[in-house]
Structure formats: C-alpha cells, structure tokens
C-alpha cells in the first residue's frame, strides 16, 4: 500500500505516517494490508477486529490448508475480488495445487481436484454456509458431523462466517489488491 492516497478511493488507507497511536503496532515492518490500513480509521475496532480475524482464519484445531480452502472457496462464492486474489496467493503458499485453487475459484471441477472424502464434505459444508439461507440441509449436517469433530465444525463454520464478513467489507469498500500479489498471480497465470 502506498503512502500516496488514491483520490478516487472510497475510504483512505492510512499510511504509516497517519496511523493512529493504537493502530501503529498492527503496521509491522512492511506495507500494511489494505484491511489494516482502512480499519485504522477506527483504531478501537482495529484493535479487536484484527486479532479476531487472525484467530478465526489462522490455523488452530484445523490446519492452514483447511482454513485456506474455507477462505478461498467462500470468497469465490461471494465474488470478493480482493479476498480471492489475496488468498489465491496464500493458498498456493500453503501447498494447495494449481488445480485445487482453480476448482475452489469455480474455474475447475471440484470432484476432480479433491478426492479426499472428508475434504469434499467440508467443501459442501462451506458452500452451504456461505450461500445458504436458513438452516443447513439435515442430510448435509449429518454428513458433516460424521466427518468432523464438533470443535472442527465450529472452527470451520467460524472461518466461513469471518470470511463472509471480510468479503463484504473488502468488496463494499473496493479495497485494492496489493501490487505484489497481482504480480505473483499474473506470473502464475491467475487473474
């Protein structure tokens, strides 16, 4: 993120020089993410939202691979350009194959890309939580509770829910994808 502000931007991304006092510790050494730099406008929200998002989307009982499947799939279903682009790069970093990433993005066949039965149930669960209205179908709920421990189901569902929140946030505010990420995606043949 550049210190120069885009005059067309809906909200300013606060560069390091304008970062409020309580936001500074979230800026780290490098360039702050647009999520950090926009949330910094309300430092008291940044202070709770970033640790929450970090915990909800980072590995805990579920590993990074599973979390990235949840984030990328949800973001693709919600058509969040920022999250799809950013988490395409992260998913590749944590070891998902190009075929798996394309399938999660809706650009390839899921059944072909994911042969593991447990992961297929998880993806069905992610789709139902991300796109559904009302309760999840009982048949899918049964399959999910057979494939996953209760705490895993909780963690997966929260990962999808937190991603939904971010998807709407990033899309509504039209947050720009980092130049580094765009370059990496272009090099890997992704849009």
């Amino acid at each position: 993120m550049s210190e120069e502000q885009d005059p067309e931007a809906l909200v300013s991304l606060l560069g390091r020089e304008q970062a409020p006092l309580l936001a500074r510790r979230f800026y780290g050494e490098g360039t702050p993410s647009p999520i950090t730099a926009s949330l910094a406008q309300v430092p008291e929200l940044l202070e709770v939202a970033l640790p929450f998002v970090g915990a909800a989307l980072g590995p805990a009982g579920l590993d990074e691979r599973t979390k990235e499947i949840a984030i990328l799939r949800t973001s693709a279903l919600l058509e969040c350009r920022y999250c799809v682009q950013t988490h395409t790069a992260v998913a590749l970093d944590v070891g998902l194959s190009t075929g798996e990433v394309r399938a999660l993005r809706g650009e390839g066949d899921l059944d072909e890309a994911f042969s593991d039965a447990r992961e297929r149930v998880m993806i069905a669960w992610i789709d139902a939580v991300a796109l559904g209205r009302g309760p999840v179908a009982p048949e899918l709920a049964t399959r999910a509770s057979e494939a996953l421990e209760e705490h895993e189901l909780v963690e997966l569902t929260l990962a999808v829910s937190a991603t939904l929140m971010l998807n709407r946030y990033c899309t509504a505010l039209d947050l720009p994808t980092g130049a580094d990420t765009l370059a990496r995606l272009a090099a890997g043949g992704f849009a």
């Binding site: 606060l14 409020p20 006092l21 309580l22």
Partner: peptide
C-alpha cells in the same frame, strides 16, 4: 484532511 496520527479513538 484531518490528521489521524494522534487519534486515540473514534469513541
């Protein structure tokens, strides 16, 4: 533009 570098909170 309002400077935010010494902002404590919006609350």
């Amino acid at each position: 533009r309002l400077d935010t570098d010494l902002l404590v909170s919006r609350t």
